[in-house]
């Protein structure tokens, strides 16, 4: 009783007295958690910025601004441009490459392909690292569970040599093992929440981009015909 009751139960002591594999699991989980939180904040800023830029560009475009001026502005400030601006620039430059009087059907087809290609690239950029968040959300609880199971195994194995076993003999080992699960959950929960939220946001952006592409091709077709 005496030895177990007076044991230091503080968080740091529990971690430092854990077995090597449990400590390794904890280290991996800390790294994963740091990385996932970094991506969470990065994606938060990126998606926010993208939505803001898309709002701005749609606002300017549908107010009836000059397409040539918009195109020039996008080319000049290409590092601050949003995805929708890039899609517009790709389609508009492809449309202008064709000489006047060429087959309208073929021109529109190539314009749509150019826009589609840029759209794919932009979506790839927006959705990058989201899969990492999904992986963290699904795997890190298992990694934490592995550490916990290993720690509990060890604490029960050390119990075998004691004739009169009490809960106090097992408790510290289980507590230190459960820290691994806690860390896994700490990494997983925000990752899952962020993944779901960002996936829905990028879906929204994708539908906006696609509808804009259709509308732009209509506008360009009218302009070529008219």
């Amino acid at each position: 009783m005496n030895t177990t009751v007076t044991q230091d139960m503080s968080f740091l002591h529990l971690i430092s007295s854990a077995s090597l594999l449990v400590q390794l699991v904890m280290l991996i989980l800390v790294m994963i958690s740091l990385l996932s939180w970094w991506y969470i904040f990065r994606k938060l800023f990126v998606i926010r910025y993208e939505i803001k830029k898309t709002d701005e560009f749609e606002d300017i475009f549908w107010r009836g601004a000059d397409m040539n001026a918009l195109y020039q502005r996008t080319i000049n400030s290409r590092y601050e441009s949003g995805s929708l601006e890039r899609i517009f620039a790709a389609g508009f430059s492809e449309f202008n490459k064709h000489p006047a009087g060429s087959d309208l059907e073929a021109v529109m087809e190539s314009t749509r392909r150019a826009m589609r290609a840029t759209y794919q690239r932009e979506m790839d950029y927006l959705e990058s690292h989201l899969s990492f968040l999904a992986t963290v959300g699904s795997v890190s609880p298992y990694i934490g569970l592995l550490g916990t199971v290993w720690g509990i195994m060890n604490s029960f194995r050390s119990l075998a040599s004691i004739t009169q076993a009490t809960i106090a003999h097992v408790a510290p080992g289980i507590a230190e093992a459960l820290i691994a699960t806690a860390m896994g959950l700490f990494a997983a929960i925000p990752a899952v929440v962020a993944y779901n939220r960002y996936a829905s946001r990028t879906d929204q952006l994708a539908t906006r981009f696609e509808s804009f592409m259709e509308e732009l091709s209509n506008v360009l077709q009218r302009r070529a015909a008219g």
Partner: peptide
């Protein structure tokens, strides 16, 4: 001009701030 756009890197905003927030 389209090829310039295609190869231009995405300027990711506030990635350092994101790291600091994570820590």
């Amino acid at each position: 001009s389209a090829s310039i756009l295609r190869n231009s890197p995405h300027s990711e905003p506030k990635s350092v701030l994101a790291g600091a927030l994570a820590v």
